[in-house]
Design a protein around this nucleic acid. Structure first.
Length: 614
DNA sequence: ATACAATGTCATAAG
DNA sequence: CGCTTATGACATTGT
């Protein structure tokens, strides 16, 4: 209905004026109640009526002649058109009246149908001319330090614990994170050594840098109460110690006070490498955060289709940067060569693995893809499932036996202007020889071909347009006008040709538009997948970094103890850990300074980050 | 009979 | 200004 309304005021073309079609249609609807969903047939009827009416205005035929002709269903209309085309052979004569005479009206339904039925195919073939031509990190950073002295961080055990918890809690990580952390098994190294303080806020968004600094400074404050206030007698007590790998450590920790970081409470007594339970580890918050990340990582893993077993193997996969290869559900379709449009530009950076394998977008849309690979790609698309659209597009130009007819944009390449050839010779490929077929098979063949034809082709045939729709649609403007000038065409024919051209171009544009839209959607989906993989990979790397950091800190702590324990003053006595501390300086050397000075510097460093935040 | 996907068509804006 | 293209909205068709 809306279309009728639209067409009534907008015209839909130069030929469709503001004629009182609504009243005509209203009569149809009453006469044919069963065609309520089939308003298209009525619209088409209107088109045909308009065509024939315009065609016969010159003949003095009244519009009412066609009033009952458009009550028929579409197939009947098409056949009627063929019939009418036959009758119109007398045109310009009394074609309309002849057509009207050949229509019988069903007494019950009011439907009309052609009295001569079906049309003679041989006459049709002559009537419609055609043309044959148209158409790892992996601790490499720390490997010198990490010689396997530390007890391995049982991350896999963490995974399994987390998995069991998460399965029970149905992935409600946000609401129960703290419980998960606190309810870890007692033997769990994470929970035992790095238990989160109950009042420590859990902030997943805290950065690694902030977490490290916070942990260090917090740790330092624990030792400060014991610090004696000694005068700064630095020159005599500063003992430079330059470790071989000091630069690495320096780059990692900056000028962090080692005493603040690793002043072990057991210095006065046992030198234990493993931090005791009483030591609030500066990495506690970090590792808890890492656990949170692992939880979200598990979430991601599950989102990506991993099963728990696969997810538990993430740690092994840390060693290789093969996060991208984990994508088992990657879309079979990928970027095509034709997606140089804006929709694809955003996705080219993240994924480089699969964009060369297959194509999605080149399935017959004209003009949208101009790549030379189009033909091959289109063949490949048949397996992807786009053949229907492709074939339907080909159907539009079925009259052309050439394979190029499915690619009208290639038709221009081999255009040879054969549209002046005899129509019968060109059309013979479409229709079987009448002599070899009985009338029934002829009917079937005719029906089949009719069904293969588009509506505009039916219209063109009815109006005896002397060239193919392919040409009407795909010819450049100049050639198109030239073609039109070669024939003496009535106004109705010209109008129909223009409509066919407009509709045909719009049809292709719509196909391209839909393909483009689909490509955009697919690209976005793939971008989402890529980003999810990147996120998971970054989280894995973060976990790995944190683990390496922890190991390195443990190593530094043991080295600190070893070095400090071997230091002797001028009297050959060891320095008291409560009075002296080792400090790491900016130039890579290690100094022995009084604890008071170390305390001061540590406090200064503690304030700096806070000031920066403000 | 109904839902749904694919496709065609129209109106409109923009190039 | 006319033609072409892109696209949303609606209609039609096939499954």
């Amino acid at each position: 209905m809306t279309r009728l309304d639209r067409s009534s005021h907008s015209g839909g073309g130069p030929a469709k004026g503001s004629r009182p079609l609504n009243s005509l249609l209203a009569g149809h609807r009453v006469a044919q109640p069963s065609s309520a969903p089939g308003s298209r047939a009525s619209v088409q009827d209107i088109d045909l009526i308009d065509i024939l009416w315009r065609q016969d205005i010159d003949l003095g035929a009244g519009r009412e002649i066609f009033d009952y002709s458009h009550r028929q269903k579409e197939q009947d209309v098409d056949k009627e058109l063929q019939d009418g085309a036959e009758q119109e052979d007398t045109w310009p004569g009394e074609g309309a009246e002849a057509l009207a005479r050949n229509l019988l009206v069903d007494g019950e339904t009011g439907e009309s149908f052609p009295a001569q039925f079906p049309a003679d195919i041989s006459s049709l073939t002559e009537a419609v001319p055609s043309e044959s031509e148209p158409p790892g990190l992996q601790n490499n950073l720390l490997s010198p330090l990490l010689t396997g002295t530390e007890s391995p961080f049982d991350l896999e055990q963490q995974w399994q614990d987390l998995m069991s918890i998460m399965e029970m809690q149905a992935m409600e990580v946000n609401t129960s994170t703290s419980e998960i952390l606190y309810s870890a098994p007692p033997g769990d190294p994470l929970s035992a050594n790095y238990s989160l303080a109950p009042n420590t806020p859990i902030n997943q968004n805290v950065s690694l840098h902030q977490a490290s600094l916070g942990g260090c400074s917090q740790d330092f404050s624990l030792f400060s109460p014991e610090v004696e206030s000694l005068p700064v007698a630095d020159s005599s007590t500063l003992l430079p110690l330059v470790p071989s790998n000091s630069t690495n450590l320096n780059s990692t920790f900056g000028s962090t006070n080692l005493a603040g970081l690793f002043f072990p409470p057991q210095l006065n007594g046992t030198a234990n490498d493993t931090a005791g339970p009483e030591l609030p580890d500066p990495l506690g918050g970090l590792l808890d955060e890492a656990m949170l990340d692992e939880i979200s990582l598990m979430d991601l893993a599950i989102e990506e289709g991993f099963n728990p077993v696969q997810a538990s193997q993430l740690e092994e996969e840390f060693d290789s940067d093969s996060g991208l290869s984990l994508d088992s559900s990657h879309s079979p379709s990928s970027l095509s060569s034709s997606e140089g449009s804006s929709s694809s530009s955003s996705s080219s950076s993240s994924s480089s693995s699969s964009s060369a394998s297959s194509s999605f977008s080149e399935e017959g849309a004209v003009g949208y893809s101009s790549d030379s690979e189009t033909l091959d790609l289109e063949e490949a698309e048949g397996a992807v499932g786009y053949q229907p659209e492709y074939s339907k597009f080909c159907r539009m130009s079925y009259q052309d036996p050439s394979p190029l007819s499915c690619l009208p944009y290639l038709e221009h390449v081999g255009h040879n202007h054969t549209y002046n050839m005899a129509p019968s010779a060109l059309d013979s490929a479409d229709l079987p020889p009448p002599s070899t077929l009985k009338k029934g098979s002829k009917e079937k063949q005719s029906d089949f071909l009719d069904k293969q034809m588009s509506r505009d082709e039916h219209r063109a045939r009815a109006m005896k347009i002397p060239f193919t729709n392919d040409k009407i649609i795909n010819l450049p403007v100049e050639e198109f006008n030239e073609l039109l000038s070669k024939y003496q065409l009535s106004e109705a024919q010209l109008s129909l040709i223009r409509d066919i051209r407009r509709r045909g171009k719009n049809k292709m544009a719509a196909q391209n538009c839909r393909k483009r839209k689909l490509d955009t959607i697919l690209n976005l989906e793939r971008d989402v997948e890529d980003l999810q993989r990147d996120k998971a990979r970054l989280l894995r790397e973060k976990v790995e970094f944190l683990r390496s950091l922890r190991q390195m800190k443990q190593k530094v702590q043991s080295l600190y103890q070893e070095v400090f324990g071997r230091l002797r003053d001028e009297n050959g006595r060891p320095y008291s850990p409560s009075q002296y501390a080792l400090q790491y300086t900016g130039d890579g050397s290690v100094l022995l300074i009084p604890r008071a000075l170390a305390d001061q510097q540590a406090r200064r460093q503690e304030r700096k980050p806070k000031d920066r935040r403000k």
